[in-house]
Amino acid sequence: MSANKRYGMSIDIDKCNGCGACMMACAVENNIPPAPEAANDRRGVTWIRVYKVDNHLAYPERRTAFVPVLCQQCGHDTPCVHVCPQQAVDVDPETGIVGQMPERCLGCRYCMVACPYHARYFNWWDPKWPAGMEKTLNPDVAPRMRGVVEKCNFCHGRWHAAQQKAAAAGQREIDAADYVPACVEACPTGALRFGDLSDSSTEVAQDAQRPESFRLLEKIGTEPKIHYRSRRDWVREIASAPRPEGKDGLRG
C-alpha cells in the first residue's frame, strides 16, 4: 500500500477576482440545489464560499479582497470530529480528508458550532431542482435530504473516479492529474491549487512554505490544510482575527 497522502490546497488571495466560478462549479459537481425562496446568506448551502473582506477604511482608502473559504480539513484535533455524537464525521488516514456522512447525521449541528471556519452547512429544506434540471445531476455524488449537515470533501466523487480509473489500469495509486476538485479546475485565474502536502515536490507543498503564506486562525492549532497567501498586510491580519468587527463591511 502506498504512503498516506495529506491532500490540501493553496489559495492566492492576490489572484482571486471574486468571480464565483469555484462556487458554481462546486454546486454543479456536488448536486447542491439552488436556494429555496426563503434562503439567505446564513441558510444557504455553499461548500466553498467567497467572502468579500475589506480593510475597514472608507472611500477612497477602502481596499477589497476576496477570500474563498471551504472546509479547512483540519489536521489536528479536528473540532467537528470531536463533537459529533453520531460518529458521522471522520478523518480518512489515507487522504487526510475530513469526511461528513449525511446518512449518519442526526442534524444536531454541534459540528457547525464547533467549526471555527463556518464551513459547515445545514440542509434547512429538502433539495429541489426546477423541473427537468434533475437531469443535470452528477451521478457520482448522492443528493442529501433535509435535516443533515454537509460540507466540502474535496470532491470525493472525483477521488472515487480517479481510483476507478487507476483500478482499470491495474493500479492502486492514482494519477495526480486525475484528481482535482471542481473548484480548482474551474478557477479561471489560477488562484486555487490542489495536491498532496506531504510530497514536497508538489506546487501546494511549495506554496505552503512561502513567506507570505498563512492559514486561517492558525493560533487555535487545528492545523488546517488550506494554505492562503497574500502580499497585502491587512489581508493577513484579517485572517488571524476571529471575525471582522461587526457586519458593516459585509454587504447584506
Binding site: D41, R49, K52
Partner: peptide
C-alpha cells in the same frame, strides 16, 4: 441565468 446563481447572490452576497 442558471438558478444556481443564487449561490453567488442570495446565499453569499458575493454579487449584487
Amino acid at each position: 441565468e442558471s438558478p444556481l446563481m443564487s449561490k453567488l447572490e442570495r446565499e453569499s452576497n458575493l454579487r449584487m
